[in-house]
Design a protein around this nucleic acid. Sequence first.
DNA 1: CGAGAGTCCTGATCTGGATCAAGGATCCGG
DNA 2: CCGGATCCTTGATCCAGATCAGGACTCTCG
Lengths: 237, 237
Amino acid sequence: MNHLKCHNCALAALCMPHSVPAADVDRIEAVVERGRPLQSGDYLFRDGDAFHSLYMVSSGALRLISLADDGEQRVAGFVLPGEMAGLGGIAAKSYTNSAQALDTTMVCRLPFSRMEDLCRELPGLQHYFFEALSRDLVQGQSLSMMLSCRAAEERLAVFLWGISVRQGRRGLSTTRFRLPMSRMDIASYLGLTPETVSRVIQQMRGKGLVEIDGREVHLPDLTGLTDLAGAASEATA
Amino acid sequence: MNHLKCHNCALAALCMPHSVPAADVDRIEAVVERGRPLQSGDYLFRDGDAFHSLYMVSSGALRLISLADDGEQRVAGFVLPGEMAGLGGIAAKSYTNSAQALDTTMVCRLPFSRMEDLCRELPGLQHYFFEALSRDLVQGQSLSMMLSCRAAEERLAVFLWGISVRQGRRGLSTTRFRLPMSRMDIASYLGLTPETVSRVIQQMRGKGLVEIDGREVHLPDLTGLTDLAGAASEATA
DNA sequence: CGAGAGTCCTGATCTGGATCAAGGATCCGG
DNA sequence: CCGGATCCTTGATCCAGATCAGGACTCTCG
């Protein structure tokens, strides 16, 4: 196993702490496990499962689902390649939402207690985790901010803009991509209904801001979209 | 200075990692600084200020303000004694919101790079910070969940219930307390208008769920309130 | 190739909370 | 004690987005 090592992983720039000596990469690599791929619909973990590991997505996509207190499920976020899932479990000792594959998805497993030990020895790694946690925390705040005061069209603009930025981070096109999630997922995540999402998409198409056919997205006017999104900090995940 | 040491601080149970040897408390104490009290309205830090320290509130209360992208200010959260402010700055290198005193407020300053160093030597401290970050992250997710799908009355129930829980954590009454924030603050935090907050309070009073006079709160039916809040995870901060 | 199940789009209506407007209450400085 | 400002409450109206109801398109599987 481990035949695809961190050393030659295309995502190393995203998922590894910056400026880690090669010898340290070996030590991290020794702890990371790569499993078999998840099929679309498979769960990586479920809300309430005992927490032991963080997961780094290397290909595909996850959707995070929280069971709202009324029993309804809401989409709490999406995890794209180079991003981490499971951070909420650290404090709660069990996962605070479910993670489900939206596509055939590969993940790397990071056993948390081993990573904690390693953090004590590799200062860069400790700081990396502090930053990862802090980043997700800020993202959650931005999302709340958006849900509490932005209109439907702005929310969708923020959402598409966010996906675009995350595509760019992986070196992919920021103006053409395929959404891994359905309209229902988007609606749930943005606190809207699928109907409203559809309507707003048509509205934005009318303004020449987007061209969307099913899940295929083209953003002909990234500047206009960014304006509408309002330079919102990355209210996505 | 430092005449009020962590050793004899009433909040030590809340703000210290559990089961830290006395010798380690000394080392943490050596890094923590206590400043003079903030007056109501004073800013502890402002959105965009360079990040150097975390702050632990020891008395009073802070309100966290985010400048939404449209220039409007939204209340992003409240920090009560025993809770930490500034965690968002770790990733961003600068504070991601402003912290303003709602009352005369005392805070302990934790210079972050010193704490990071100490984390490497005191395993319990490292874990403590991981947990604190993870907890706030989950809180943000709960808040989003609430904003995207709960009605005004439920939001207020979750809010009051959350304050009650936090009072209890400090050993204070969970059914009688004084709110440190105004109706406007509450409304902004919950994504509502002050008018709606007022109306919903009257409505809840009619049901015998709350008795509120100005900022004085009495919760005669904590069970009913908890039901309405829906066992929501702590969507507060 | 045809039936069934999703998913997506569109139209008509309804409603919770925003907005607008105006009184009271409370607090402060002079 | 008074004048002004701020905060809280209450009432009347309005609207963005939810809800309800179909219809079209795309998969998949027999």
